[in-house]
Amino acid sequence: MMAKYLLLKHYRGAPAAVNDVPMDQWTPEELSAHVRYMADFAARLEGTGEFVDGQALSPEGTFVRYDGEGRPPVTDGPFAETKDLIAGWMVIDVETYERALELAGELSAAPGAGGKPIHEWLEVRPFMAHQHTVIE
């Protein structure tokens, strides 16, 4: 049965990629090739009926928390250099766990510096879902 998975991309915090040149050192052509690859990948998954959602995130961000009744929320940031930093995600809905791994593998082959695959590490996380059984 179909199950949803989150494919998580990291700016920082994942093990080092094979083609580890950071994005801010890519040429504009390399950058647009990367973006095109991601868009094509999403379009292909939409065609197979496996796409749910995908977004890229800005590296800028702030921590926010509740600070009690009637008080403005407390903010903290920008993020420290050591923090695990999410770059974006894609949510897929696929028949098997193996298929989720296969797609994550393809996504990890997106081109980076020199137009070569980045081989970046993606995190594959199953959604909390229900069991498929009536037997309780």
């Binding site: 949803k4 197979t48 959602d53 809905d93």
Partner: peptide, 15 residues
């Protein structure tokens, strides 16, 4: 009902 976008479900049915 299956928590996917309409476009995805359309493709599933069309296929």
């Amino acid at each position: 009902a299956f928590l996917v976008p309409e476009s995805t479900m359309t493709r599933r049915i069309t296929r």
